[in-house]
Nucleic acid binder design. Sequence first.
RNA 1: GGGCCGUUAGCUCAGUACGGCAGAGCAGGGGCCUUUUAAGCCCAGGGCCGCAGGUUCGAGUCCUGCACGGCCCA
Length: 502
Amino acid sequence: MELTELERQRAEKLERLRALGIEPYPHRVKRTHTIAEAIAALEQAAPGGEDGPHAAIVGRIKSMRVMGKVTFAHIEDGSGSIQLFLRVQDMGEESYEIFKQNFDLGDFVAAEGKLMRTRTGERSLLVERVSMLAKSISPLPVIKEKEVDGKLVRYTHFSDVEERYRQRYADLACNPEVREVFRIRARTLAALRRFLDQHGFMEVETPILQPVYGGAAARPFITHHNQLHQDLYLRIAFELYLKRLLVGMYERVYEIGRDFRNEGVSHKHNPEFTQLEFYAAYWDYNEVMNFCEHMLAWVAEEVTGSPIIRYQGHEIDLRPPWRRVTLRDIIMEVTGIDYLQYPSAAELASVMKSKGLAAKTGASWGYLIDKGLLGEVEPRLIQPTFVLDYPRDISPLAKSKPGDPSHVERFEYFIGGMEMGNAFTELNDPFDQEQRFLEMGKLYAPDDEEVHPMDEDYLRAMKYGMPPNGGLGLGVDRLVMLLADKSNIREVILFPHLRAKD
RNA sequence: GGGCCGUUAGCUCAGUACGGCAGAGCAGGGGCCUUUUAAGCCCAGGGCCGCAGGUUCGAGUCCUGCACGGCCCA
């Protein structure tokens, strides 16, 4: 192990402790109170002097002020932080010196003594014994902060974005507000599960390694099973497996898990991300819409205390009903283009260019609408909005709109300028479904990311009879971004993907 | 993929306009200090200036390429 000078100094302290017969990484810990419990115990005790309740607490040393024969330090555990008050008169000369010479910021320690208040009134532990629980060799970035008018002012910090992501452990250790983001994430996941469970949905787990990928338009990661001599794909969606379960007579199922898409990385995209999908037999997309807006308003309230949230300076009201607008109308509203007037890719691309909009050459008609025109619309949809009725060509798993064969019953929904998810009245006619797969094959080149490959087993399932149903996908990371008020997906993923250095 | 910006001590940053001994604060080391909380005071340390080339008597600084990251655009 290569050590920096600072690390060598700490390693020497570790050896000094060992030489004194003190194990710097002991097996067992004595703890009578968490720090929060210790503070509560002190609050309950009769005030006065240095004779408060006895407590054995543990934590990581966050600050230290050595003043000769007296030292103040703050330690932090998972519940909070408290000041340690160490005096040579209480600890004895030898123990006090061992502490002073060998204990550093970042060390995990155990401290035992009496809870009390210092002259300035700060809740403290008057330490009788202190011991090492785990020596920290690498110095954590030091955080110096102070409360000014009730606001926390930070003088030094750990803020290098790249290093924060590459060494998330250090980020979390130094930055309590980052720890809070992932508590919001955990509460969001728990709230989603609670809501779905309460509404009769069953959580299931379907394959991540799939012989045929499907359910979305995306490039997959490919892997290989050695024993089976078979290429497998990491799933890009759960859709086709969840709908097989409706054939199997479950009426409401959902899955929360990881999808993998072999695509670019951006502030809204990570190659692996957390998806929620649910399917409900006998629902159409109107019922899905209704459920969706109630679910997200409820989850927001559970997580943040209110269905009205603040996101990047916007106040966003998640209470139902959300705005409903057709794809055609919202595109006309924003770009002035009625895509139905331009039924070929060439015509549509030409009018888009005439309006100064980028149109990728060689892109299909559906791609131009979805990525081109809708891309213009997306950042403007700050308040929750359902965008309804998508072209059939780009929606091979959705049921057609009655009386309008060119469109399907599909919606995407947007909040805070981000696409949050996608939903349909699911196609359950096996002949129609087969036809859609075949059309896909004709309209697109085989390696086109828009292609949904034919899934024979899915068709076989559907031939047994699939109840009419509605389903929805939700980008969970993006929901957490909303609820934690973060503009970058990496801020809500513990270990986001970064390019390897060298 | 393109444009712009960044990369200097463990951390946060100066230094780059106009090339001339590598800087500060915090952290760490030695000393003083028995109620501090950004503790204070004194002393002495700490560098592959992202990497590789080039220009130059001389490059952290100028030029080229590369790596990683950020922001914006596609």
